[in-house]
Design a protein around this nucleic acid. Structure first.
Lengths: 334, 334
DNA sequence: ATCCAGCCTGAACACGTGTTCATATGTCGA
DNA sequence: TCGACATATGAACACGTGTTCAGGCTGGAT
């Protein structure tokens, strides 16, 4: 570490490299552009000088000049449960793998709203929605700026928006049938507030399956997609009329409900079946062994990144709505 | 939705707004700059025209001209467990709250390395490290470009690097003493590979406490900070000489170990104590009720964001190393 | 009448890059 | 010898912004 040089903040530019290598600034730019006419020896000298000085082309200038920004925003919402965070982390990795750099917006509504207004000043190649509450407003702002939107997790019927969404209704309908076949007749549901679009869809799927068997929902509680809210909702439901199956709109709440039933000494699944949705890693743990619906994150990420690439390549591409297949995972709680 | 206009990709610029409002381009810029001389009526007219056209100043041009980029990178690594993902999500929210936009780099080593080279072309105000494996190399690259580094989670002794780190050794030493006071004498440890710096620190704290009581580590296993790896490591250890306490370097592995011991019918904590580190939300659930060391995420995020702000404000500020206090959380597994 | 200070305004510049344009040099075939 | 063509190179431009510069206008004090 001999002689750590503390330079002033000025960044090394192509002009600096040009001077150091004794060439024109144009040559430096060409040295970093494959397939452009440039003497091989000169190119090597430039790259050597660039490495020595620690030069990297300034992305701001390159983008302003007309280059691709490779910036993609992820509007991630509050990420209150592990599934949301896992999806966000997987999206980040997936975007990195295709050479896109995700600008992530998270936190509460007020913070996210303010952040959005500022982030939209950057030339985004796409905006990926994963919020649940502010989606329409965000999509409208993006449309005004010509930023393509990819909504993952809720379907938005707006021009300029691609949708990726798992088959919420089908999954929950399958689950409903499984419970009915297992002899359950009084089915309770724990959903979410109106802003949680998927909760409504999943509820609808369940209700459809029940109706087909001449049944209706025995009880309807509202959670917040967190473990604690599942715990609390289960407690509320137990205070009401009896039921023999508890369908939760996601795994986190199912695990919360499961915990409460165990605390109360109620045998699962003998007296009450408990099922969830998503198939988070925890659902497979022996401690829970939760019957659920698999909502594959890797497929979601692949679909989204593919959509990003195709949209960037062909901005006029027609909008798409892609459904992701889900499947029942039968474990020990139904 | 009458007449959805599908404009060509061109973005609205200040010149467009100027023409629409019948003023000079300078006036438009002034309208968005508080405290600059501009007729009030004219300012209102400009803002109205800007709103109508959907104008936002282009961040690339503004930054290139000399403005703040407000971009901060987070080198997040693979985020294999929920604690890592929670930290990342909290960092994102915290940075948004102070008006910084995080560019997140994640995924496996090869992906992250390639991503780094590209992301460094953007004028970053800071780089936040949260990786575990590639940190030194990343810090070196940043130092070469004059990008301030904030390492959170491991201490890097390099110029230009601020460090934020919880008191790993103290926390595990406290935990060691607690176990010894509880009568444990044969303590096993589940750590991580050498690249997991915190595992080494935590191990050291435990060993120190044991030595002070005239004891040594009974067994030493290697995990990967995931639940599954804790499960597997516990199985390996059970095949060896007996022990009465199992200290895991993080909660995820402790929960994995706990699951295995339950599967084998080994009473916890009667026969074997199991403890972790971090105090993730799951640790408090009745299903686990894990004794652990609280590693406060909110304090970490506050410290990091504060450091970012102070470093941006005063780039020549001396480097700091800030320790975050931890505390024992005594629950039911010790 | 003269000066000055305060407000207001448009032209011009700098930021750093990728690309185009014009020009120069070398090579090959007719 | 001449033209056609590929290769090589520096000057000049455009990208869109924030700020500086120089100047014009207004109103009041000297």
């Amino acid at each position: 570490m001999a002689g750590t040089i503390r330079k002033s903040a000025r960044r090394v530019t192509a002009a600096d490299v040009a001077e150091a290598a004794g060439v024109s600034r144009s040559a430096v730019s060409r040295a970093f552009t494959p397939g452009s006419y440039l003497d091989d020896g000169k190119r090597r000298a430039i790259l050597r000088a660039a490495k020595r000085l620690g030069y990297r082309p300034n992305a701001m200038a390159a983008i302003l000049q007309g280059g691709a920004s490779d910036l993609v925003a992820i509007f991630a919402g509050e990420m209150p449960n592990d599934f949301d965070r896992e999806v966000a982390a997987a999206l980040v990795s997936g975007l990195n793998a295709i050479g896109k750099w995700p600008l992530v917006i998270g936190g509460d509504e007020a913070t996210a709203r303010r952040a959005l207004a500022n982030v939209l000043r950057y030339p985004l190649e796409a905006m990926i929605l994963r919020s649940g509450s502010l989606d329409e407003g965000v999509a409208k702002s993006c449309a005004k700026l010509g930023v393509p939107v990819i909504s993952s997790g809720r379907i938005l019927h707006m021009p300029g928006v691609d949708n990726v969404c798992c088959r919420n209704r089908d999954g929950m309908a399958d689950m409903g049938r499984l419970l009915i076949e297992g002899g359950r007749r009084r089915v309770a549901f724990v959903g979410g507030p109106e802003t949680f679009w998927s909760a409504g869809e999943r509820r609808l799927g369940l209700v459809t399956a029940l109706h087909a068997a001449g049944l209706t929902l025995s009880a309807d509680a509202m959670g917040a997609y967190t473990v604690q809210s599942g715990y609390d909702a289960a407690a509320d439901l137990l205070a009401g009329p009896p039921f023999d199956a508890l369908v939760c709109a996601n795994d986190a709440m199912a695990i919360g409900a499961l915990s409460l039933l165990r605390d109360r000494g109620i045998p699962v699944p003998e007296q009450i079946a408990v099922v969830g949705f998503d198939d988070i890693a925890m659902a497979a743990w022996p401690a829970f062994n939760l019957t659920t619906v698999r909502n594959p994150i890797d497929t979601l990420v692949e679909t989204v990144t593919d959509l990003v690439q195709r949209r960037v390549e062909t901005p006029t591409k027609p909008d798409e709505t892609i459904a992701i297949d889900v499947s029942l995972v039968c474990r020990g709680t139904h």
